[in-house]
């Protein structure tokens, strides 16, 4: 595999051809905010939170493969504004009642809002009518909180394995559908994996929740991406 040299925020790094910009940045301790992207899952670039300035153009860093002498700028005032606007839109689009959510404090969408210091959404909330699917014995799906990132669809099942999750309907009515027959014998491990795959509180493992006290949850004291940035400081 051939190597290329790319510049991220003025510093040069070597990367393998075919690697995505977001992964190269992560390995080198530079945090690019992501939401629909997950390490080890085929990227799709739908949420655009990872939008960076790549060779002068705004591109999704999770679906842009590196090329020789590529120049990437991961953060500036305009990019921060784009990202903040996306987070505000996602909050306005769904029914995100943080105080009632089991995922609060461990939620990626909420953590991004904290990182960007969103005090209020500039958009009027839609309050869409959505339901909760709790038929599965191990997990429940709360469509109110789903951001349609497709992480569950891409990570759970697929590529030869039966698809446990899939999209149903189209446009603004699109929602994640769970195959109740295939998931009837879901184990605790599979339920946990499904819950961990969801960046928000849309997929929850049953009989679990609020088990970590406020103050000790993932994003209570440090913003999302701090781990990556700490690694970067060591390099």
């Amino acid at each position: 595999m051939s190597m290329v040299i790319i510049t991220i925020n003025g510093k040069e790094f070597s990367a393998k051809t075919g690697e995505m910009v977001v992964d190269v940045a992560r390995k080198n301790g530079i945090y690019i905010p992501t939401l629909c992207n997950m390490e080890g899952v085929i990227p799709q670039g739908s949420c655009r939170i990872c939008t960076c300035l790549i060779d002068g153009r705004t591109m999704a860093a999770c679906t842009t493969p590196v090329s020789h002498r590529m120049n990437v700028e991961t953060n500036n005032a305009e990019l921060e504004k784009i990202r903040t606007t996306i987070v505000e839109l996602l909050f306005a689009e769904g029914n995100h009642y943080c105080p009632t959510c089991e995922r609060s404090g461990n939620c990626d969408l909420q953590a991004l809002a904290y990182r960007f210091n969103v005090l209020v959404s500039q958009f009027k909330q839609i309050f869409p009518t959505r339901n909760v699917d709790a038929k599965n014995p191990k997990i429940l799906i709360d469509h109110n909180r789903c951001i349609q990132c497709k992480r569950c669809i891409r990570r759970m099942g697929g590529s030869g394995k039966p698809a446990w999750f899939s999209f149903k309907d189209r446009g603004h009515k699109v929602k994640v559908n769970i195959d109740h027959e295939l998931t009837a014998d879901f184990t605790d491990e599979m339920a946990q994996k499904a819950m961990d795959t969801c960046p928000v509180g849309a997929i929850l493992k049953k009989e679990k929740g609020f088990d970590v006290p406020i103050g000790r949850r993932k994003y209570d004291t440090e913003p999302i991406g701090t781990e990556i940035e700490k690694e970067g400081a060591k390099l």
Partner: peptide, 14 residues
């Protein structure tokens, strides 16, 4: 949260 987003009382909205 209630003043900012509607909060828990707004759960009746949807």
């Amino acid at each position: 949260e209630c003043g900012r987003t509607g909060g828990l009382p707004a759960m009746r909205n949807n």
